[in-house]
Write a protein that binds this DNA or RNA. Structure first.
Lengths: 224, 224
DNA sequence: TCTTGTAGACTTGTATACAAGTGTATCTGT
DNA sequence: ACAGATACACTTGTATACAAGTCTACAAGA
């Protein structure tokens, strides 16, 4: 497991949660691997209690499975779970972008423009990790523009299943299409064009479905 | 706070979570009240650790607010939060009932019929609490029929905000309409009639919106 | 009277000890 | 050699001690 620096003011529990989540998404903690509360706590230099609390949090999202008195394991990638995550994301993204088309917060629109210009900036430099962060921020901003921040929190709890699959499928060529999608979505919001916006969300999501079968062939041991 | 018996095989943490959640929904723990980890643990006869873990869980759903080194409080009823919960419920219920209209699991349909007959049974006996339980089960069954159980879990984490408002607005006369709605929804699913189903979900939800302003007048100290 | 500081009783955050269950490796007896 | 008992090294679950921050009441001094 890759561990990072503990941020200033960050509680031990938040630290453990952040490190575990990042390592699960990045697949440095591979699906199916054992997570020992003792090991993690000694690696991070904190006690078992905050580590345990972080693990319980993650188990709520079904990304870690706790077997009492036996051990805790990183969940295998469950196609059914990924499918439900995709369903949830599609339903929420569509509903929220419709609201954004009706009435978007002007201040947030400004931030979206800034975000998009940065996506262009890093696109030409082929900085996939930067694009990924900006991608996440872009979608969060749409929720904020629609005043649906709590719904976004809900979305992100399950989206970890999706992000993990996304880690396996980063392709440089795809980033271009993704960024183009984002620009198109933003324009649809500006034009109050719900139909186009929803169609774009669908197209955007379909990009991930394609290579899932390829991934499954390449990494069968990660799947349930 | 009303405390109940600890169920057989139930962990201390699950016990604390269940008791706290039930008391928050029933408003025996009134909005804004202080929740002391020490008090709860001594009341329930368990130690602080599992109580603390339960409180952290509930704070994830924003139903309890933890202020480090100061105290943990039951969240006041936040109209914005309730509105987002309503939005989320509407979006999810509509999307899922559409799937159920397309293809519903026959075994689950059988269970829904059983549930509906029980709703009729308790309706004539005016057993509001039984109706409430059956109401929750009914909606969960629709999710199961559509094979969207994980989405239902997500739904229930935020629905606590909604349930709490519902506690303030139980009216015998309303139960009749609710049960009638359920029958109509079930028929729409049988008839694969998506349009009617979605319209029913909308009508169903609108029943709660009506008396929210009345509640706010009656219990202003519960609101943010 | 008003300010200030200080003691103390809270709070949550963290560390650690112990309880209890599980799986494995090993030893023992047949 | 094989079956079964057993010790041991794990695991998570729970209890408890202590650390550190916050608020309040109250007394001392200007």
């Amino acid at each position: 497991m890759k561990d990072t620096e503990r941020l200033a003011g960050e509680t031990a529990r938040d630290f453990a949660f952040r490190v575990l989540k990042d390592n699960i998404i990045s697949l440095d903690l591979v699906p199916g691997s054992l997570i020992s509360e003792n090991d993690i706590s000694s690696q991070l230099g904190i006690s078992r209690t905050p580590v345990r609390e972080a693990i319980i949090d993650l188990s709520k999202a079904s990304i870690i499975e706790i077997y009492p008195q036996r051990g805790s394991y990183v969940s295998l990638i469950d196609p059914k779970m990924v499918e439900e995550a995709r369903f949830l994301r599609r339903v929420l993204d569509c509903a929220v972008i419709k609201v954004a088309c009706e009435s978007a917060d002007p201040d947030v629109l400004e931030k979206i423009e800034e975000n998009l210009s940065l996506q262009d900036f890093y696109l030409v430099r082929e900085a996939a990790d930067k694009i990924l962060d900006l991608d996440n921020e872009f979608h969060k901003l749409i929720y904020t523009a629609a005043h649906k921040d709590i719904v976004y929190e809900i979305r992100s709890t399950i989206m970890i299943h999706f992000d993990r699959v996304r880690t396996l499928s980063v392709e440089a060529v795809k980033d271009m299409k993704i960024v183009a999608d984002h620009h198109a979505m933003y324009n649809a919001i500006l034009n109050h064009d719900k139909e186009t916006a929803v169609a774009l969300v669908d197209k955007h999501l379909s990009r991930y479905r394609l290579d899932e079968s390829k991934i499954k062939e390449e990494f069968p041991e990660y799947f349930k």
